[in-house]
């Protein structure tokens, strides 16, 4: 560690000023705008937002999808991560790479695939009609289910990766030891694996949850104007009505959720470093 504070400060300045002025400042002004009415500062925008039935519906749907996707990815994630963690080191690192890969691919491309699959003439409908489950094609697109599936595909890898790394940090002989003592798999999972990978679960969970509730592309493409989430509502309010006040309230809600989840992650990861 070098002692000269001035040099340190100087090196920080470009990034600080840039992010502060080009990014944070406009965002803060936007947030302030939601707290101002013609009569001065007030929470009126917030009360009217929360009492509006469409906003309530969108809020609830966003939270429902957020929690639903998080829960589903945790369940699938444990199945996958436990399998990966038991594999040989080489397979493990290849598998990990396979789960990182989709994260890098354009979410627009990733979401578009579901249009091909879920459309009226898409693969799923063809199969359903083919095996006689339905006569008419089902309306699968522009539904909450479609958004759910799209979000799950987008964010499942984050859960798998953080659970895999949590399982890798678990002492390796703990499960065989418990098996020798006669514990069954349910006991082992709830008594050993879950508590020992709690941090990984929470980190993965917050990443998936924040990703899902702040998603734009998936609800825009797979939900359309009927199945709005907070970000698509924000976009609609601006492009249809130039309603900056509502946009500002939504922004505050999204930022609030994001801050809470990120500070949770920060707390967990910094605690691990110091212990």
């Amino acid at each position: 560690m070098f002692a000269d504070r001035r040099i340190g400060l100087m090196l920080m300045m470009p990034a600080m000023f840039f992010v502060g002025i080009a990014f944070l400042l406009p965002v803060l002004i936007l947030l302030a705008e939601g707290l101002r009415t013609s009569e001065g500062w007030s929470l009126a925008r917030y009360t009217s937002f929360f009492s509006d039935s469409l906003s309530q519906e969108v809020m609830l749907r966003t939270l429902r999808l957020g929690f639903g996707v998080t829960l589903a990815s945790a369940i699938i994630g444990y199945g996958v991560a436990l399998t990966i963690a038991n594999a040989s080191p080489l397979t493990r690192s290849r598998m990990t790479a396979l789960f990182i890969l989709p994260l890098m691919i354009s979410p627009v491309a990733r979401t578009y695939a579901w249009i091909v699959l879920l459309g009226r003439t898409g693969l799923i409908n063809k199969v359903l009609i083919g095996i006689g489950l339905t006569e008419e094609p089902l309306r699968l697109l522009f539904s909450e289910t479609a958004v759910f599936i799209g979000l799950l595909q987008l964010f499942l890898p984050l859960m798998v990766l953080s659970l895999t790394s949590a399982l890798e940090n678990m002492p390796s002989d703990i499960i065989p030891a418990a098996r020798i003592l006669g514990a069954n798999w349910l006991t082992i999972f709830f008594r050993l694996i879950l508590p020992l990978t709690r941090e990984g679960l929470i980190i993965g969970g917050t990443l998936v949850f924040t990703g899902a509730v702040t998603a734009y592309i998936t609800p825009a493409v797979l939900g359309g104007s009927k199945v709005l989430m907070l970000e698509t509502l924000l976009y609609q309010r601006i492009s249809v009505a130039n309603d900056v006040a509502t946009a500002s309230v939504i922004a505050a809600i999204l930022i609030g959720m994001s801050i809470v989840t990120h500070s949770l992650i920060r707390r967990l990861t910094s605690g691990k470093r110091s212990s």
Binding site: M1, F2, A3, D4, R5, I7, G8, L9, L11, M12, A15, M16, V19, G20, A22, F23, L24, P26, V27, I29, L30, T214, Y216, E231, L234, Y235, I238, A247, A251, L254, I255, S258, I259, H262
Partner: peptide, 29 residues
């Protein structure tokens, strides 16, 4: 490497773009 004053505050500002959903930044800009 350096003993930067207000280190945590500075780190928070620099990482804020991760926390603020991007659509909001776009609108604000």
């Amino acid at each position: 490497r350096y003993d930067v004053p207000f280190r945590e505050a500075m780190r928070t500002i620099i990482t804020s773009p991760v926390i603020v959903p991007a659509i909001i930044a776009g609108l604000a800009l």
